[in-house]
Amino acid sequence: MAEQPIEPIHQFRITNLFDIGTFGGNGTEGSGTHLAFTNSALFMVLTVGLILAFLILGSNRRAIIPGRMQLMAEMTYEFVANMVRDTTGTEGMKFFPLVASLFLFVLVANLFGMFPYFFTVTSHLIVTVMLALIVFLTVVIYGFYKNGPRFLKVFVPSGIPWYIIWIVVPIEVLSFLSRPVSHSLRLWGNVLAGHIVLKVFGGMVVALLAAGAWGVVSILPFGMAVAMTGLEVLVAALQAFVFAVLTCVYLHDAMHPGH
């Protein structure tokens, strides 16, 4: 414990559990694409494994009167299904598996991150960007597939005079393009900031304990760290919910462009 570095960003470090190899490049150090099974990958696998085990094993008995696990699996299902149905309508239920996958992946990955010494998958920008890009590309591709060129009406709010359109449309385009940015940065920033704050308070505790008589005061940052942990659990669930709700809102735009 004492050997652990207490710098707050150490927890985000990616370590290679075993190497797969380097592809491309010219053989020199740092060139080419290096692939490895990392701790991040381990926790992605754990996340997916936990979700699927929870849902499939929980509902395996197919009981009419559910047991505890089955009830939880069904409540999760109903929660996401209601979210999708409320936001996108019955028509949007074809995206229910996507939204459920995104929601549960983010939720479980965030909650995994709340365990000490566990790696937080969603604290890495590349992961949240990919999550957001999945949504963005789904919206764009499905929007054009379903509506054709009419999908461009998503940039033109209805019922505004023509001379304002020239101002509004660029803003709408910009806001549309910034969606994946904000979508990914929101999740990443919340998770990252929360974990850094936790580690900063944790570091204060360690530093104060090492300072002899001042160690008594370490109860203050320790209490703060406990409170922040509670808040971060809330934020972990909240950001997963927000991610899923925003996904639904964007999908709604894909199905009904033109506000």
Partner: peptide, 14 residues
């Protein structure tokens, strides 16, 4: 409320 909170909070996160 949660939606507005998330969208607003994103600005701070930025």
């Amino acid at each position: 409320l949660i939606f507005g909170f998330a969208v607003t909070e994103a600005m701070g996160i930025f």
